[in-house]
Computed example of a mutant assay.
Amino acid sequence: MIDQQFLERLIEYSPKLLESLQETTIMMGLATVAALLLGLPLGTTLFLTSPSQSLSESVWARVIHQILNLFVNIIRSFPFLLLVVAMQPIIRQFYGRATGDPVAASFPMMLIAIALYARFVEQSLHDIPKGVSELAESMGASQWELVVKFLYVEARSSLVIGFTTAFVSFLSYSTIMGVTGGGGIGDFAIRYGYQRYETDIMYVAVVVIIIMVQVLQWLGFKLARLIDKR
């Protein structure tokens, strides 16, 4: 039987829980936009300039590949909590504040989202059989047509699965923002559960996060199966 005091506290904290979910949605939304608008082309560029591709014959292409590869490696290997702390002075300089605002908290998440999804995209494109690129070249396809009409079409299922995996990681990163006062469901769990020694409220937040992860993964893999025509 559910404890009456727990229900009363849950009702009391429900507005804060809904507010934290809204903040998480904002952070996740901005990270998603950054991953799609910047991570996708970044990963594609890494693939096109990699040693196995024809563009690598250009010196500039090799330099670009090394620079972008170094950027992705540094961001992905940087402990996220330290990345958040290190970026706070920069965010405060350009945005005006670095904590207590989901938009401000989104900047580190956007950076890691770009690097994370770029690596997924690069790997997905490398998994495409080389015959696809050879077919596109034999048909006289331009570089743009090769990417949009051949590579993305062939890798669409893998790209969706990679994005789903990255999206779940974004949610995990968003909970860390609570440690630095960035808001979101993680902040709710820490502030109203852990710091007030109300572990049942903290577990409610954990259950909400688990449900969100399961729903997101189910939707992502369902979409990947639907668009996989192989």
Rank of each mutant, 00 (worst) to 15 (best):
Q22S: 12
Q22D: 04
E23C: 08
T25S: 13
M28Q: 05
L30C: 02
A31Y: 03
T32I: 09
V33W: 00
V33M: 07
A35W: 06
A35F: 04
A35T: 13
A35S: 14
A35R: 09
L36M: 12
L38K: 05
G39E: 12
L42K: 08
G43D: 06
G43S: 12
G43R: 12
T44V: 15
T45V: 15
L46K: 10
P51D: 10
P51N: 13
S52P: 03
Q53S: 09
S56I: 10
E57F: 10
E57D: 14
E57P: 09
S58W: 11
W60E: 13
V63A: 14
H65V: 11
H65C: 11
L68C: 15
N69G: 15
F71W: 12
I74T: 14
I75H: 07
R76V: 15
R76E: 12
P79K: 13
F80Q: 08
L82T: 09
L83H: 03
L83C: 05
V84H: 01
A86N: 06
M87N: 04
P89C: 04
P89V: 13
I90P: 00
I90M: 10
I91D: 04
Q93T: 12
Q93K: 12
Q93P: 00
F94G: 00
Y95K: 09
R97S: 13
A98L: 05
T99V: 15
G100A: 05
D101S: 09
P102Y: 03
V103L: 08
A104M: 01
S106D: 01
S106L: 06
F107Y: 05
P108F: 01
P108L: 03
M109S: 00
M109Q: 02
L111P: 01
L111Q: 01
L111H: 01
I112H: 00
A115M: 03
A115Y: 01
Y117S: 02
Y117G: 03
Y117H: 15
A118C: 02
A118Q: 05
A118V: 09
R119W: 06
F120L: 13
F120S: 06
E122S: 10
I128S: 06
P129C: 03
V132K: 08
E134I: 02
L135H: 01
L135E: 12
E137K: 13
G140A: 07
A141T: 06
A141K: 07
W144L: 13
W144T: 08
E145T: 15
E145V: 11
L146E: 10
K149V: 00
L151S: 07
L151F: 07
